[in-house]
Amino acid sequence: MRRATKLSAAAAGLAVLAVTGTAVAVGNRHGSDNDWPYAGHGVGAASYTLAAVGDIACEPDDPENSATPTSLKCGSPTLGGMSAEFATAKQATDMHPDVVALLGDEQYQVGKLTDFEQSFDQAWGGLKMLERPAPGNHEYYAYAKKGDNEAAQNGTGYFDYFNGHDQSGAPTTQGQAGDDTAANQGWYSYDLGNWHIVSLNAECDSDEFKHDCSTTDNGLLAQETQWLAHDLTTNQRPCTIAYWHQPTFSATTAATATVPASAPGAGGVEGAAADAWWKLLYQHRATLILNGHEHAYARLRPMNPAGQYDPAHGIPEFIIGSGGEALDTLAGTQGNYANPNVVTAQASAFGVMNFTLKPHGYSWDYKPVLAGPGFDASALQYSDSGSGSCN
């Protein structure tokens, strides 16, 4: 692991799983007296718990953010705020996960290192050694909306937080968030029992990607796509999960201004670019795709890369952007969603997904933990659970 600070003594004896491009530490319960979270499953375990969520931490109201409007910072009545991110962190902790998949936009508004330290880390820092993040637009892009004007960080704070840095502040180039180099901006894969799990970086409209969202030229996103093709080809495990931030298919009004919710690319240029990833994942019979970006929870039917229902070989998409920062508006109503592939959705409360990964299948259990601004406790009556098999 790259970041050696703040590690519990219980981290001693960690077993290291093989990872493409980095090392992932997961504990070994066999022969260990250590309790969770650092005493994980050993080889041959029957099942693993994967907690998954994105869009988590409000921007801290500190002197460094004095120019940010108060409506965009922790304490704003329109945001989930600290209470929401602490609630979702506790929910994830109570799952006793083996791994926590973070689906981007971990820290608002532009993901400075000090923002991560003053907000995200306050709530989610206790799970840090189990977190396997993907970046979102708020970690890469500038933010110039609603009276705010903050410069793009291009992943600097994100990598500094998850991968660490030296005493002079120079970032470490390899760690649990993947590589931070000119040739690799944090895409990586890791294995958990029979499951192969891939974390991707979709933030192609950034300086680091030279604002090039083509998957077929010689740019960075094309190189990432080539890496994904090779990673999937060499994978030997029967079950595969891939996750990145912007969804290819949408469930909310926020992402459907120019493209129908059921069409590839409703999430913007990043979602359109990720259409190439869908095609690769579909070709290799991936089991699940997870996204954030839309501040809601939604489960979509198994789909082919064109967004058509495909019960035989399609991939279900889960949007889990309910980590605590804010909530969006669903496109349509229950039973009449704008995207007919949306099976169920909610955008009135914050919550974390609990996946149980079994040798040849999985189950999911989503329950919100805190009602959003303007909603009462009835929002917590929502739940979604079920099971599926690996393709």
Rank of each mutant, 00 (worst) to 15 (best):
G268P: 11
D115M: 01
C74R: 03
Y143R: 13
T88C: 06
D231G: 05
A23I: 06
A51G: 14
A331F: 00
D160P: 01
L300P: 08
H41R: 15
D121E: 10
E117H: 04
V43G: 02
G31F: 11
A84C: 13
S83Q: 07
G104H: 05
M95E: 08
T252M: 03
G324H: 11
G386Y: 02
L72K: 02
A84K: 11
Y362L: 07
E317L: 13
A242P: 10
H295S: 10
G155Q: 09
A39F: 01
H165C: 07
A222P: 07
N28P: 01
N201L: 05
F116M: 02
S389F: 03
L200M: 14
T68I: 15
L300H: 07
E64M: 02
T216K: 06
W187I: 00
S32R: 08
W124A: 05
D191K: 15
P69V: 06
Q334Y: 04
P238L: 12
A18K: 12
Q167W: 11
L103K: 03
Q91Y: 02
D384Q: 10
W364Y: 15
S47W: 04
A152R: 08
D191Y: 05
I56V: 15
V369G: 02
A92Y: 03
V343R: 07
A123G: 15
L127R: 13
T215G: 07
A312V: 12
T333W: 00
T233C: 01
